[in-house]
Design a protein around this nucleic acid. Structure first.
Lengths: 264, 264
DNA sequence: GTGCCAGAGTGGTCCGACCACCAACGGGTG
DNA sequence: CACCCGTTGGTGGTCGGACCACTCTGGCAC
């Protein structure tokens, strides 16, 4: 079977899988340096070009990293290493998919915030308080907001959770959210949400934290829903649009709870 | 600035970002065919080798796909396309990280199952019932189990949610779980969980669905915790272990709720 | 002992060639 | 005329080799 498989499988892909296998079974451990591209290519019986493509793929996955002139290394294989890639989702996605992303965040962030309320230590909560002041201070609001939320999720002590949530929150999306709220004069509401979350953390109250986080995500979700509907209306007026281009991706991501009901 | 940036930025990376930019601003849309590697390389002023590495990276990210002899195409950019990559996390991870993964699933799956109970149509629920019989039938249990859970999450209608959850459940991990439960004579318990979930879906009862899903994930989590502790004990007896290899990743991912309390 | 510098080794880039594969065009056949 | 099938051009896949940019290390000079 191996032979038949190998015959029709692209050489590069085979190389990728062979390296993954060697990492999985421990021949290459986290932080280890790999043999040189030339040696590895000879070892696996492929050209250096193909080997480089395989390495490039594994670098993209966050499994390897290369240092010019020094060698190729296995990363620490932390969740944050391996999940960095999927920020492309929030980067490239538009429209309905963004709503889906927010729906997932509405499942994760409240639970994460509640966890943080129960487990964060004083230093972490103090740090979060500092970030909150940065937001209100007004300078670099977007990145400050991003940092605030990341710090909360990080305070859960669950690196995987933090990495997943970070992936679902992209800087570019946050920028749009803030711009949209500023335009609508709603920044005060966001501020209010943040303070409520912080107070819940200070009080070590998981339930309050969960509720505050839910309200926050919901607010953003409502805004996005309205904005998307606005865009759709504009397009609808202009023309029926011959190719709306979306074959799949189905319905506009409805919801179960009141937020959706309100919308309909 | 552009010039200075460009000078020290690897050519391949610049190519990756340029293509991403062209996708983001719509010059390349979902399903479109890209210019040939040779043309694209000439256009961006890089060699074909570097262009191929850039394309390879974007293929790994799920943004592009190439068809031998036919051309390179932009994918549909569905969440499932873009999130396929992160199954490496569940593939490569071990020990404490797996616990973290389960903790995230404990936030997602209950919410997703509840959503499915509210939104799945009759056909979807019937299909899920079929998969349930496949599991009990006993043949290909692992893949059947995987299919059961995936079908439920898919029934939420949120493709992003489904893709994220799939990424957190790898086939190899499921295999370990089933083997471990069979060994411990707990397969009946898993079966029981599945039926409870299905009944909640049939009854369109989100609360019951949430509870059943939580119990199920919790059961797996408990088992994994015990197994990891067993392994740690073994290692502890044998030797103090010079390189436990984990520099970061911190504490063993505790929990807030009863499951953790029971454990301590 | 300390600092610097040159060399060897490594990844980064480029080039040109050839192979494997697909798709569309064409001529042949019914 | 309609349909089938082989040809042919163009595409991605692989290869080998060359050179550049960078890092690290060991030995030299001070």
């Amino acid at each position: 079977m191996t032979d038949l498989d190998a015959r029709r499988t692209p050489v590069t892909q085979r190389a990728v899988e062979e390296i993954k296998r060697r990492i999985a079974d421990g021949r290459f451990g986290p932080g280890d340096r790999l043999p040189t591209e030339r040696d590895l290519a000879a070892d696996l019986g492929v050209s250096r070009s193909s080997m480089r493509e395989a390495i490039r793929a594994l670098i993209t996955l966050g499994v390897l990293e290369s240092r010019h002139g020094a060698g190729v290394y296995v990363t620490a294989l932390r969740p944050s290493d391996l999940l960095e890639t999927f920020s492309v989702l929030a980067e490239v996605s538009q429209g309905a998919t963004l709503l889906e992303v927010l729906q997932v965040r509405r499942m994760l962030e409240p639970a994460a915030t509640a966890l943080a309320a129960a487990r964060a230590d004083d230093a972490q909560i103090a740090h979060i308080g500092t970030l909150l002041e940065d937001i209100d201070g007004g300078d670099g609001t977007v990145s400050a907001d991003l940092g605030f939320h990341q710090a909360i999720v990080a305070a859960t002590g669950n690196a995987t959770l933090a990495a997943v949530n970070d992936g679902l929150s992209s800087a570019s999306f946050h920028t749009r959210v803030w711009a949209g709220h500023r335009e609508a004069g709603l920044t005060a509401k966001l501020r209010e949400d943040h303070h409520r979350i912080h107070e819940a953390l200070l009080a070590r109250d998981p339930d309050a934290a969960r509720a505050a986080a839910t309200a926050h995500v919901l607010r953003v979700e409502d805004w996005l829903r309205a904005e998307l509907r606005g865009q759709a209306d504009l397009r609808g007026q202009a023309a029926a649009g011959p190719g709306d281009q979306g074959p799949a991706d189905a319905d506009p991501a409805g919801t179960v709870d009141p937020a959706a009901a309100r919308e309909r």
